[in-house]
Amino acid sequence: MNSFFTGRPPGTPGLVLFLNAGDPPLRNLPRLAEALDALGVDCLELAVPFPNSATDGPVIRRSAHRALSDGVDLDRVLAAVERIRPRLRRMRVVLLADWSYTVRPLGIGAFVRRVRDQGADGLLVHGLPPRGRDAYLGAVRETGLPSVTTCYAGSDPAVVARAAAEATAFVYLVAYYGRSGGAGRIDPRSVAAAAAELRKRTDVPIAVGFGVSGAADTERMHRLGADAVVVGSAAVESVERSLAERRDFVHALEDLVRRLRSKPAKSPAPARTGAASSQGKDHRNDHP
């Protein structure tokens, strides 16, 4: 499998944490990123804030509004990424940018080159229209910048196939239709079927998001075929609550990461009769 999530112990799910750049304030990003890196977070999905996202619920929209009100823009976000990237031991930084608000005004080629040159490990373009797809794919191939693609658990087979074919970082498999942080219902069979179809078509990791807020969710998505989980609303809400209560948001996010981690499998007691046997093998992390 493509090893975009480096250093992850075999059989354990990776963790992608989403935050809007600038919420918390960008001056705090170095300390925050280093703390998440030390905890073993595999990827920070850092959004260039944009207004009125059609795919996000009120928690992430409020977060973007706070960042935009503080003057956060692409220049400041890329400068922050460039500062923090050399400090990280293993955590990757994937930039999320909205096509209409951020990418199109700069031009796709110039935008992709800047993202690569200033240190991001990958890119996800939100709202990429069909007319811009070929230019985008050409730009990421030319620069060698890993690309994240998306599809839903209930997407048309052609959409799933395209997401698999075009991903070079990982595929973000959205567990259900709706807005982030909503009360959508996850259909385990649809998630498992989509993950299995993606796995047949690509060797990049499959990261499942929406509806993940604790260790039980992480474990369930892993059993359904996810190589990693994406946690957005729970992370952003943790920051929002900390800011409102004047608490340390770094500690709050560290607590969230610990809650999200799957509980380690307990090793069986060694047999008293001598020779080791296959009874000691743990199958709980096998995919269905």
Rank of each mutant, 00 (worst) to 15 (best):
M1E: 01
S3D: 09
T12M: 07
P13W: 09
G14C: 07
L15Y: 05
G22Q: 09
P24V: 04
P24W: 07
R27H: 07
R31S: 09
L36C: 02
V41T: 01
D42N: 14
C43H: 02
L44N: 01
L46P: 00
I60A: 03
S63K: 13
H65G: 04
A67H: 05
A67V: 08
D73H: 15
D75I: 06
A79S: 11
A79N: 10
V81M: 12
I84T: 03
R89D: 04
R92L: 08
R92H: 02
L95A: 05
L96R: 00
L106R: 13
G107R: 10
F111Y: 13
V115R: 08
D121I: 12
G122N: 04
L123I: 04
G127I: 03
P129A: 10
G132S: 02
D134I: 06
D134F: 11
A135E: 14
Y136E: 03
V140L: 07
E142Q: 14
P146L: 14
P146T: 05
S147K: 02
V148L: 05
V148S: 01
T150D: 00
Y152L: 15
Y152Q: 05
S155A: 13
S155T: 10
D156L: 15
P157F: 09
P157W: 10
V160R: 06
V160F: 03
A164L: 08
A165V: 07
A167V: 03
A169Q: 04
Y176N: 06
G178R: 12
S180G: 06
G182C: 10
G182N: 10
G182E: 07
P188F: 13
R189N: 06
A192W: 09
A192K: 04
A193W: 02
A194L: 02
A196G: 05
E197F: 03
E197M: 15
R199P: 01
K200D: 00
D203A: 14
V204Q: 04
F210E: 00
S213H: 06
T218F: 00
T218L: 07
H222C: 06
G225F: 10
D227Q: 12
S233K: 01
V236H: 02
E240R: 10
D248V: 15
A252E: 13
D255A: 15
R258S: 06
K263N: 11
A265M: 14
P270G: 04
P270T: 13
R272L: 15
T273Y: 11
T273P: 00
S278R: 15
G280I: 10
R284Q: 12
N285I: 10
N285W: 15
